[in-house]
Each structure stands twice: as C-alpha cells, then as structure tokens.
Amino acid sequence: MRHPDRSTPHSTHPSTRRRVRALRLPAVLLALGLLPLVSACGGDSSAAEGSSGSGKGKVTLRIGDQGQSLLTTLKVAGQLEDLPYEVKFNQFDSGPLVNQGLQAGAIDFGVMGDTPAVLARASGIPVKVIAVSRTVGPGYTLVARPGSGIHSPADLKGKKIAYSRNTANHGFLLRVLDKEGLRQRDVTPVDVPLQNIGNVLESGTVDAATATEETRAKYLAEHPDAVQVINGRTVTPGYAFRLATDKALADPAKRAALLDFSHRLVLANEWIAAHPDAWVDAYYVKVRKQTPKLGRQVFEATGRTFYVPVDDSVIREQQKQADLFTANGQLPGKVDLSGQFDPAVSKEFNARTVQKGSSS
C-alpha cells in the first residue's frame, strides 16, 4: 500500500469535482495556513464503485482517500465484496484537504501522513486516531539538482527547497533541518502543490526538493548526477494515520463498520505483500499511469508497510513533531496531542489492526 499524503494523479473527472466549504478556524491558524480556506476534492464514488455492500442497517461510511490508494487497495484484494454496509470514497489531493473534509463533516474517516494528523489536532478537528501504519523504507528523499552546491544536509542553509506546506514532506524537511541545528527560516522554502514537486525540481528553479520515491526515481533517471542528500529512513518514523470523527465513533453502528473497514485494510495490505505484481499493475500502472518497470521499481524501493499498535511510542513521535512545528513558528504555541488518542478506542481498534511483525 502506498503512503498517503504523497503526490497523487488528477484521476477524478472534472465534472465530479466539488468544492468544500471554508473552515471556520481561529484567525491565527488560518493566517499560519494550517488548512487552506477553500480546497478541491474529488467527488464521491458511487456505492457500486466503492463496494458491493448491501447497506444492511442503512450504515454508510464516507471515506477520505488520497489518489485512490485505499479504494484500489481494497478493490484489488477483494475486500469490498459482501460488505454489510455501504462505502463512499471521496478523493482528495493531500492530507490537509482530507482534514478539511473531516472538519466540514463531509467524511467519517480519513487517511493521511503524520504531519496532517498533527495539524488536525492543532486545528481542533474532532477526530481520534484509530489505526497507524508504518512503512519501513526511505519515505521522502531530499534530492538536490546537479550544480546546486548541496552535497549533504550541512549545505542546506540559504538554499531554495521545494516542499508542500503542512503535508508529510513538510514534517520531513523540518526534521532534516533540525538534525543540522537549522530552522525553516534558515532556508528559502518554496511551497508548491504535492503534484508539482517533480516539475519544480525539473525546472531548475529550486536547489532541492522533498521527493517521493516515484519522483526521485524519475528525476535520477534523467539526471544521474543529482545528489540524494538524505531520506526519511534516518529522520522519520514512517507513520501514516487513519482518523475517524468523534461523531462516527459515538454511533455504535458506524463504529462497528469502522472496525470492520479497518480490519479489511489490514487484510488488503497483507494481500498486496503476497501479490506484488497484481498490485503494481492495479495501482502504479492503471492508476498512477506508470510503466510496469517503473511501478515495480517504486514498489520495491518504497518498503514494506505494517499496521502497528497505536501506543505511547506513536504519541511521543507525534508530540515531537508538533513541538518541532511550534519551534519553527509553524504553530502559534504548544499543541498537546494526547486528546487525539483515546485509550479505549486504541485498545478496541488495535485488536483488529495490528499485524504480526509490525515492530520489525
């Protein structure tokens, strides 16, 4: 399964796209850009497209997906068959936009990287963490263009670096800078949409960029003398988050559906590990529109994903990131993340989502 909150294709037809209303957030949070004022997201897939559920009990889960990753994962693994509830998938282009869908009440469940999960709490969105995946791999790579003068993280001061604000690659960049005793103000950050990171790097208008594995592979193929400065393996835990609204969790029928849905995600993830060729064809070739060769390369380089316990170690890492955002002036003050983790919810969902070998 691919990591959420990475660049996604514009696969939703324009006629189905819709606008999500602006959030009513404190002015200081809006000024800091925690969430965009107005954002586009993909239209709902039909229940027939998203599932073959019978809708027993008239329960419908509204899922916030990114780039069809969850939809494709579940469909190719056969986990959308014989559902006892309906599922509607909403496609978003980034984690911050999933957050806006959660805040607006448009979805019950959302998938995102670690940074948007922190900012969900900072923005007061009423959600809880119900499942966490960890990818044991490079995650993002800071790639420097040839001739940039960047050879190691120590060379980043004063350089122009492309990133996407408030997404997981923003958190990655701050961790890289922190490793060198630097802050965001010590570089010239160039905020671009996730989908445009590769294009900006290719244009030569920045010195370096926070690249996904797919972007890294493509760029290095064309620019073999580019510098791979550092990747997330050494600075990030590799977490991605599944959040559910407090309202959905308070509804017994929806909570039961969320438990089942989360377990199906785990089963689908295990299916992918056992059928890599089918997954590469279904996702990288058919959805991402990559060649089979590149798709396989990206899949193998990305690393294995496991669902891990929602526990104190996860909370500590997230709190560390929140404090780093505060220290960099990206949050107006201390953000306590403990309220996003409910011990009762964690215990219940851990029993259905934690995979064997997830600590490896």
Rank of each mutant, 00 (worst) to 15 (best):
H275S: 07
L119A: 00
G329K: 03
G204H: 06
D311T: 00
K159P: 08
Y239L: 14
V127Q: 04
S94A: 09
K157V: 11
S123P: 02
R6T: 15
L258P: 10
R24G: 12
G198D: 13
V200S: 08
R288P: 01
A351S: 15
E348M: 14
V280I: 11
S7N: 15
L70F: 12
R6P: 03
V298G: 08
D260R: 06
A48H: 06
P126M: 04
V235Q: 11
A211G: 02
E300R: 03
W279S: 05
T8Q: 13
R165T: 01
Q66R: 10
S359L: 03
A168D: 15
R288K: 14
L119H: 07
R352H: 14
A248G: 14
P224N: 05
L30M: 14
L201H: 11
A273C: 05
I197R: 13
R6N: 11
Q290P: 00
K286L: 06
A154H: 09
D311A: 08
A344V: 13
R145C: 04
V127K: 05
V285A: 03
S338Q: 14
R19S: 10
S148H: 04
V314A: 02
V111E: 10
D336Y: 11
S69Q: 08
R19Y: 07
R165P: 00
L258I: 06
R19N: 03
I130V: 14
L259G: 08
I107N: 06
S360L: 01
V354H: 03
L267W: 00
A344P: 01
G295I: 04
A211D: 08
E49I: 00
P4M: 04
L80H: 07
P343F: 06
S313A: 15
D342W: 01
T353M: 09
G78V: 14
V127N: 03
A208C: 09
S45G: 15
D281N: 14
E300Y: 01
S338T: 15
R304Q: 14
E213F: 00
L220Q: 10
Q184S: 12
A209Y: 13
A27T: 05
S54Y: 01
G55I: 01
K247A: 14
P292R: 13
V354L: 05
I107L: 12
T236I: 00
L294V: 05
D82A: 13
L80F: 06
G339V: 07
V98R: 05
D82G: 07
G53Y: 03
P343N: 09
N166H: 10
A120I: 00
D5T: 12
M1C: 05
V127T: 13
P96N: 08
V280C: 02
K160Q: 15
H263P: 05
L331T: 12
A282G: 04
